[in-house]
Amino acid sequence: MSLFFVGAYTADMGGTADGIAALGSLPDGSLELLGTAAAADSPSFLAAHGDLVYAASEATGRIEAYRRAGGFALKRVATAESGGSAPCHVARYGDTVVAACYVDGRLGVLDAQPLALAQTVEGTAGTRSTGPHPAQDASHAHATFALDDTTILSADLGTDELHSHALAGGRLTRTGSLRLPAGTGPRDFLRHPSGLVLVLGELGLTLTALDDRLEVVATVDLAGGEPGDHAAALSTSADGRFVYAGLRGSNRISIIEVDGGVLRPAGWIDAEGDWPRHHLVDGDVMHVAHERSNTVATFRIGENGIPGLISAPIRVSSPIFLLKA
């Protein structure tokens, strides 16, 4: 049985979850709800490092660390300020933990042992213009990504920028920025098996491929995207031929074919729920977390790259993020 942890919204963010939930896989690849792994306040984004699980507590502005405690249980072992407001992404890079904070656009840099805030990197709104979309009212840091061992990228949804940072001595120094087309709203990163860095445009409904010099190789509109949609999460098929992105609003999974440096729309499927906030691919199975319908749907990916629903979605309270344990 495979184990998955679910980041979720609790009452402080308008959700109904109790904290981090645990799901287990069934023989057909679908999932069952095992219970609550740890009570927590809106642990919306999760990241694993060894036997630790880090959670971004979006409402409290804190980063929490949990340790596996047998079975599917998690025990909280540390908590620290994130350095900003509404942390929505957390990642550990070596001995450094970095939080991306949505509301004020800051990056919080934390020492991992002991967990403690060590540095705050300010957002850029005010020195550069924000984008044209109503959601781009200010700098909004949404994710970070390790380009290599010493280079950390961050996505600013509010200013349509990707920032480069040098990581040295557990601290970040901003070294440059790449401005994407106005209204892109960069949200998520994914390293494709080809080596390309893929960037999801939440607001522009685009997928952009970059090389390691951060030069744009290709950009494509997301298949199935409708006006008013918000894209969320990226995953790739096991062979790397297809990339998947969630479309909140039309409630679809967009499918993009990757052929070398060429990106091509390959269709879309019904996500089988309301507001597909996150998804992951595990072998030939895709799990999709639907925030508003309180469900997780599971699909089998065919040889043609098209996911097909395995069984009826299961009930999971306010699921925001899925992490394979």
Rank of each mutant, 00 (worst) to 15 (best):
S2V: 08
V6K: 11
G7S: 10
A8Y: 10
T10D: 07
M13N: 05
M13V: 13
A17I: 01
G19K: 00
I20V: 08
A22S: 02
L23W: 11
L26F: 15
P27D: 00
L31P: 12
L33S: 03
L34M: 14
L34Y: 06
L34Q: 13
A40S: 10
S42G: 06
S42F: 01
S44T: 01
F45R: 11
V53T: 05
A55M: 09
E58W: 12
T60W: 10
T60N: 13
R67P: 15
R68N: 05
T79E: 05
G84T: 04
S85P: 15
A86M: 08
V90H: 07
A91K: 09
G94I: 04
T96R: 06
A99K: 10
C101H: 03
C101I: 08
Y102V: 07
A116K: 05
A118S: 06
G126Q: 04
R128Q: 13
T130I: 10
G131N: 01
H133Q: 07
A135M: 14
D137C: 13
A143S: 06
D148F: 15
D149L: 14
I152G: 00
H163D: 10
A168L: 01
G169Y: 11
L172I: 14
T173L: 09
S177L: 09
R179W: 12
T184Y: 01
G185D: 01
L190P: 08
S194Q: 02
S194V: 07
G195H: 12
G195A: 06
L200G: 10
E202H: 13
L203M: 04
L203R: 12
G204Q: 03
L205T: 03
T208C: 13
A209Q: 06
A209T: 02
R213E: 10
L214Q: 13
L214Y: 09
V217M: 14
G228H: 08
D229R: 03
A232T: 09
S237G: 04
A238D: 04
V243A: 06
V243I: 05
Y244E: 03
Y244T: 00
A245F: 04
L247W: 00
R248G: 00
S250V: 07
N251Y: 15
N251S: 12
N251R: 05
S254H: 01
I255A: 06
I255R: 02
E257K: 15
G267E: 05
W268F: 10
A271C: 13
E272Q: 13
G273D: 01
P276Y: 07
P276E: 01
H278L: 13
L280D: 08
V281F: 03
D282T: 15
G283P: 15
D284H: 13
V285N: 09
H290M: 03
E291F: 15
V296W: 02
I306S: 05
P307G: 01
L309C: 02
P313C: 08
I314M: 07
I320W: 15
L323K: 02
K324V: 01
